[in-house]
Amino acid sequence: MKIKQLKEVLGFLALRLCMVLVMAILVVVFWDIVTKGGGAVSWELLTQPPKDGMTKGGIFPAIVGTLLVTLMTALLAVPLGMGCAMYLNEYALDCKFTRFIRMSIRNLSGVPSIVYGLFGVALFVEACNFGTSILSAGCTLGLMTLPLTITASEEALKAVPRSYREGALALGATKWQSIRTNVLPYAVSGMLTGTILGLSRAAGETAPILFTGAAFFLPDLPGSLLSQFMALPYHLYILSTQHHDTALVRPLAYGTALVLLILIFIMNLFAIILRSRLRQMKKE
């Protein structure tokens, strides 16, 4: 009995240690960025374009660029991902072929983002003739996000009890009616949660936009979907490695990192709020 209890205590301790370790790393990273970047975040940083060879001024065009390209990503990934998940979960027969498709989708989420970048160059920039632009970069990021969106949406659809579907069908509802009125309302928050998490990952990606539309420096904001743009992650990359005086712009780099982090945090917050709403709806 004593040994059993000891094992129990040790087991919990080990698990707790894992948890503390993970949290500690997060806290250290966050602390580092906040302390070093906090001083750089100012009204000027948020509203001004870079000046004097990026040693002064702000990151306003990069913020706008990241928001625009994320929006473009969402426009592609949300409808396509949700539609695909609905088809796979609700309509497609469970045969070898669909299992193969599903497996391929899961595997696609493991493809390195730089590969998506190169693919984006071949498909959107060149074949579709979108050039290096918000459109190309957004589509590339959208493709990259799709596997995550589809998988998360499918899980959300799976979580809707079968009895909701059967109950509706037994009352003479068509399949689409049962999905629209009795499945989607309960799955949509879960679908959106997964999608937003995917989008927030896309917003922080550098590799896929590197060749597809992100610009080193632009004095003006993008004028159309076919313009190049500045983006926060790419800007951060430049400030930390490509700048002629990286030591001088270090505070600006940290400030950029902090802004990017906050932006992503806000998106994740949205996902959390949606999730808690979903839980509440289920409880009622």
Partner: peptide, 22 residues
């Protein structure tokens, strides 16, 4: 069905469901 399977809607909407889809 074997297990009661009301939809997570109001009592009224549950009964009205079959009418509305028709």
């Amino acid at each position: 069905f074997q297990k009661p399977n009301p939809f997570p809607k109001s009592i009224f909407d549950n009964v009205a469901y079959g009418l509305r889809v028709n």
